[in-house]
Design a protein around this nucleic acid. Structure first.
Length: 476
DNA sequence: ATGTCC
């Protein structure tokens, strides 16, 4: 990105003034190097978003931002319904409520190391992974409706997990406002065989070791110490969320025309929050959030079953579960006044700071855990929400490394077998049904996640707490 | 991300 087109606010913040149809500014959080590597498309897309009706504050880009469908991935934008604010399917993303949850095994590296291969094989055999992977659960119509309304709370009721898990999930495991009737029959049919499956692309299940600690007090309050072994699950709402995205994109294109909304880009299709299509989408999207929460809950249950057989002492207590593709109604300060706004976070993690009333007691002092997944074979990071994030980004932070190279380019550059061998030489076991998938996800195809989280920390979006490094990765 | 093109 051309740095000369931006006004520098600080070492880690850049601004584009609102001109030519922009209703609010764009603010990008990144250091000069990350900004230099960022695609011009991020600037163009963020500028386009500021032209949508009812946008408030600014359109924000996180340090891991890259080119997405309509909205940049790593983008945050909030809209006010009383100002004709809109909701956009492209502003949430196709993998609705894709997210990350991290579990504490309660074990140290030395206890896991001799059984790493056994665990990787057993997890790979138990958790369905890959394109079109199918699970063992088949929900009938009534169960599907209950799942879409109940989320992880429903999953726990079905025996997939523990009631104490729910405290450690955004929305306490159940997103209010879900309307299963706003979800097409086709979307539900696609989801029927896919409950409890990991999917493909950047989704994974990883065994990780806590490495460096950056904030000792918060790490201790999260129960993290160097050498501890964690399990992280990264996946979303599978076919259901994707189909909802497809269904509503079409309806929103018509709705935008009908409501006279001028779209700078067709991909920004949207509908007023207070309109039939807008309300239906929000109901369907909340149902997809519940689907993703239930999905991660079932995979957690499968993971615990595997550990119970191999390492019966493993606790696998849930640290936290975050979603990074959502639109949520939240109260935020807009020009110094508290207002209810619809915050789109696409490839951006909610990062509520200390004292936020929606956080469970365990995180009232520290701020919520912000889980940042790296690429396969690189570190992941655990951060904590800050008070400053509220005014900087509607309490949002980055979500991952962000691609530096297209999938196509990655496949031309590496072979899957080569990537697996290289990682094995570094002690990282990879199990995947797809060599191509592994090549697409080669660590070199991603930006350096370390630079991304440093930028997020220095910009004040979230506070660095701990680094975790991979031991074994089950890859879709 | 995705029954990687209805």
């Amino acid at each position: 990105m051309d740095i000369n087109r931006l006004t520098r606010l600080s070492e880690f913040a850049w601004r584009i003034e609102p001109v030519d149809g922009m209703r609010v500014p764009v603010i990008i959080y990144a250091d000069e190097i990350l900004l230099g590597e960022m695609d011009e498309k991020v600037r163009e897309q963020a500028v386009n978003v500021t032209m949508l009706p009812g946008i408030v504050g600014a359109c924000y880009a996180m340090p891991d931002a890259h080119w997405g469908y309509g909205f940049p991935i790593g983008g945050v934008a909030a809209f006010a319904p009383e100002q004709g604010g809109v909701v956009s399917a492209g502003g949430v993303g196709f993998d609705i409520s894709c997210g990350v949850r991290t579990l504490h095994t309660g074990l140290k590296r030395e206890q896991i190391d001799p059984l790493k291969k056994t665990l990787a094989d057993a997890l790979y055999a138990t958790v369905p992974v890959g394109v079109g992977s199918r699970g063992h659960i088949r929900l009938d119509h009534a169960q599907m409706e209950e799942m879409l309304r109940g989320g992880a709370e429903w999953a726990v009721r079905q025996g997939y997990g523990r009631s104490e898990d729910l405290e450690r999930i955004e929305e306490r495991g159940r997103m209010a406002g879900a309307e299963p009737e706003a979800v097409s029959v086709h979307a539900k049919e696609r989801q029927r065989p896919e409950m409890g499956t990991l999917g493909s692309g950047n989704h994974y299940l990883e065994i990780q070791e806590v490495g460096e600690i950056y904030d000792a007090a918060i790490a201790a309050s999260f129960g993290l110490a160097s050498g501890d072994v964690m399990v992280t699950i990264h996946c979303g709402s599978r076919g259901l969320g994707h189909q909802i995205g497809t269904d509503y994109l079409k309806r929103m294109q018509a709705a935008a025309v009908q409501h006279g909304i001028v779209l700078p880009d067709r991909e920004l299709a949207c509908a007023p929050i207070d309109s039939p299509v807008g309300r239906d989408y929000l109901g369907a999207m909340c149902a997809a959030i519940n689907c993703a929460l239930a999905n991660r809950q079932i995979i957690t249950h499968l993971t615990r079953r595997v550990f119970a057989e191999i390492l019966p002492d493993a606790r696998l207590d849930l640290l936290y579960d975050v979603s990074h593709n959502t639109c949520k109604v939240e109260e935020h300060l807009v020009h110094g006044r508290k207002r209810q706004v619809y915050v789109h976070r696409k490839g951006a993690t909610r990062a509520f700071g200390p004292g936020h009333p929606d956080l469970p007691k365990a995180f009232r002092e520290s701020g919520q855990p912000v889980l940042i997944g790296g690429s396969m074979g690189t570190a992941s990071y655990i951060l904590a929400g800050t008070a400053s994030g509220e005014t900087l980004s509607f309490a949002s932070a980055c979500h991952g490394a962000g691609r530096a190279m297209s999938r196509h380019q990655a496949v031309r550059t590496w072979g899957g077998r080569e990537v697996v061998d290289e990682l094995a030489a570094r002690g990282i076991i990879v199990r995947s049904p797809s060599w191509r998938g592994v090549a697409e996800e080669a660590p070199g195809a991603y930006k350096d996640v370390h630079d991304v989280v440093i930028a997020a920390d220095r910009a004040g979006l979230a506070r660095l707490v701990a680094q975790v490094t991979p031991m074994a990765c089950i890859k879709g």
